[in-house]
Amino acid sequence: MFELRLEQGSLLKKVMEAIKDLVNDANFDCSATGFSMQAMDSSHVALVALLLRSEGFEHYRCDRNISMGINLANMAKILKCAGNDDIVTVKADDGTDSVTFMFESPTQDKISDFELKLMDIDSEHLGIPEAEYDAIVRMPSAEFARICKDLSSIGDTVVISVTKEGVKFSTRGDIGTANIVCRQNTSVDKPEEATIIEMKEMVSLTFALRYMNSFAKATPLASQVTISLSSDLPVVVEYKIAEMGYIRFYLAPKIEE
């Protein structure tokens, strides 16, 4: 059997909100390592990888590896029924075709359970090679979300360029152009407000803003976002999840042909 218990149930709610519009169905893999998921969007342009390590849960039991095929919109519907302070338990017995979500209020005076039917999903698991990135930008996640939202009112694509000057986000559209430059800034009172740019090589890549805005739905999970860029490679937009793991979004660039 498989069982996990998470006192901070709101984390799972936030994870679902971050991915439910990007991915329709996904296999959630449960192993001794933790609870993980990898899936592509329906156009195979973006890939999301989620890991919640077993040590991060208050209770985690996985007798044997299982893969649970889940429709994310349906899982999101169920998790929306959990209160923000609720303790969440997820349970699946071997050989059954459903998974149970149990929500307990902090004072234990309300206990709900929801059973979700599992489905067979024929998904490809992609191997993500280790890469040395030309540039890695760490910045406040809310700032990144704001930039993507602002630029998408002007254009459909964003050019992200990292130079010694900083990181520049540019777009162009029918009404004109926009450029937003963020410089390295480590002299802030709070580390979560810092912008840190590690650059090995200058890099400039073009991406669809629609996807960036979708990734930014993970903003409530982490105060900082890490953007890793290399020429002619998918960008990695990573949100760390407390002490538990991460949600990583990979987005294929637009390349001039």
Binding site: M40, H44, V45, E124, H125, G127, T206, A208, L233, A252
Partner: peptide
Amino acid sequence: VNQQKQITSFFTKS
């Protein structure tokens, strides 16, 4: 013109 690439052209089935 910029062509949108697919993830599957960078990462392959494991």
